[in-house]
Nucleic acid binder design. Structure first.
Lengths: 120, 120
DNA sequence: CTTAATAGATTACAAATGTAATCTGTGTGA
DNA sequence: TCACACAGATTACATTTGTAATCTATTAAG
């Protein structure tokens, strides 16, 4: 179940707040993106077709919810990215990010924390 | 300058060995992928159009070379991935990878090394 | 010289994607 | 009750991508 970049914005909205009507999704998204309502409806439909989301009828409206779990999306996306760009080598990925992003000392602390967690 | 997933395979070949003829590229790639020679030629042409690669004439052949640098590609790819999937937060990215990949103790050592480098 | 092989250029074509507009059915306000 | 607003469904259309096939010019072989 591969979802496109645009579709992912819809998923973000649903992952944020469980069940929502199209109207709610639209108003949350019109803020950030400046997509037309029709565009957002199209994306919703494509996600339905891909079974990444579902809905329950509520009068004449639908209330949409995510089927695809965010964690699963992240796992699959990071994995394919890692393969594509770093041939699967996590360390070189982290090195690249570190170089690029100029981590703050809080972020560095967090990383150390994560690594401590790994060692146990 | 955005290059597609397939095009990236061509770049990999050129990044590996500087200047190469189409024939050389084809034979390196036919091993891994099972793309048709014509397909590879198409990808070469698209990369030329995108100015990601260039060539110098050598008799009736061209000798191709990368213009786009691997480091720049990696930087841009990782950055857009980080934004898309992790909203820019490096730590949660590393956490996700760690969870997913089951790092070996050597890899953990490497990570610690990288972080030590960041702290100075 | 003539011809066949080959290099690169151009064209092909379906699926996915971004970005909507139009159609259709129905509940709601006047 | 009756028209219309709004929800969802369907259709649209250009671009990108994957995956080649065909065209054209030139060189190398006989």
């Amino acid at each position: 179940m591969i979802i496109s970049d645009s579709e992912k914005y819809i998923m973000d909205v649903l992952w944020r707040g469980s069940v929502k009507t199209a109207k709610e999704i639209v108003s949350e998204l019109e803020a950030d993106t400046n997509w037309h309502e029709k565009t957002i409806k199209t994306l919703i439909n494509r996600l339905l077709k891909k079974k990444a989301i579902g809905y329950e009828k509520q009068g004449r409206e639908y209330r949409y919810f995510a089927i695809l779990k965010e964690d699963d999306y992240i796992a699959q996306a990071t994995d394919s990215f890692l393969q594509k760009v770093f041939k699967g080598d996590v360390s070189s990925l982290v090195a690249a990010f570190a170089k690029k992003e100029k981590l703050s000392s809080e972020e560095i602390e967090e990383l150390k924390e994560i690594i401590r967690g790994l060692e146990k």
